[in-house]
Amino acid sequence: MPDAWIPEALSIAERIATVHVRANVLVWLAWRLGDAERTQIAERILAAELPRIRHLDSTEMRSQIARTVAPLLPEPRRSEVLAAFPSPSTASPQLDGAMVRGKAGLERSARIAPELSTQELEVALAEAVTERSHGSPHDARLEAVAALASERLRRPHPPRQRLQKLLHDTLHGRAETRAEVLLVLSAMAPLIIGLGGTPAAVGVVQAIRRVGEWWP
């Protein structure tokens, strides 16, 4: 990504509504920066995001975000963060399709996506795709689909064509209003970037900017 795009991309990422999605996109962008700036972004994520989590699964989510952010930090700070936010369990959580249903199930599946086996990811993703959307300012279904699909991309033998079609269908199915387009682009950013890398990240920034400027 050209250096000139990074400040705007960071600004857009910070407006993503859901904590773990926002953190994931910020981390991806931080890897494009130098060591000092990367460390500043990591510390900012830790300071701003972790204290905001106040629900029953807060320990699980804090640990997940810490494990995502920690590689940005130099030692010994990296080890300090990992030690301060240990994983609640080293065992992979058991998940079936029924556990993905409803808003709470979708939110949980998005949070624990990195801990699921590849088979569980496939089951959860298939179920999330069939769930109904849950409106705005953020949509639990879209965020679950993006989290599960982008995690599946990181596993062996990712079904890229199937995930590209899923992204295409999702974008075209929710493009009726300006607010819908912004919602979908923000929620699906992890999958867009996972499929397309740096060019896709630039495209997301450009698309969001164009929508904001030209679509009333």
Rank of each mutant, 00 (worst) to 15 (best):
P71K: 07
L50Q: 03
L121Y: 07
P159D: 02
E75K: 06
G194W: 00
H134D: 10
S109T: 14
S109V: 11
N24Y: 08
A17P: 09
L56V: 15
D3K: 08
V211G: 04
L72A: 05
E37Y: 03
A84V: 06
L29Y: 01
H157P: 07
D3Q: 07
I65Y: 03
Q119S: 15
R15C: 09
A66Y: 07
I208F: 00
S109P: 04
Q94W: 06
R77A: 11
W5E: 05
A30L: 05
M99V: 07
E127K: 11
S109I: 03
R141W: 08
I65H: 06
A9F: 00
A30V: 05
L142S: 04
E131K: 02
R152T: 12
R38D: 05
P7T: 01
D96N: 10
T177W: 02
P76Y: 03
A9P: 03
K103W: 02
V145K: 03
L29T: 01
A23P: 05
P88V: 00
M61R: 15
E143A: 12
G102A: 06
I12V: 11
A42F: 06
E143Y: 08
A144G: 13
P156Q: 01
G194C: 00
A149W: 11
T130D: 13
R178G: 12
R54Y: 04
S79Y: 09
W28L: 09
S92H: 09
S92Q: 11
E122C: 03
P71H: 00
L56N: 11
M99D: 15
A128W: 09
P216Y: 00
R154W: 04
A140H: 08
W5Y: 10
L29C: 03
R174N: 14
E8G: 11
A9T: 02
R62N: 12
Q64E: 14
T68E: 13
L183K: 10
R162G: 12
A30S: 09
V184L: 08
R22G: 04
A149N: 07
R44K: 15
L182G: 10
L33S: 05
P199M: 01
G34A: 05
A4S: 15
D35H: 10
T59V: 14
R160A: 11
S79D: 07
P88R: 00
H138M: 12
G105D: 04
G212T: 04
G173I: 03
E213F: 04
E151W: 08
A48D: 14
A13G: 08
R67W: 14
P114I: 01
R162T: 09
V19K: 00
L50M: 05
P51G: 00
W215N: 07
S150L: 07
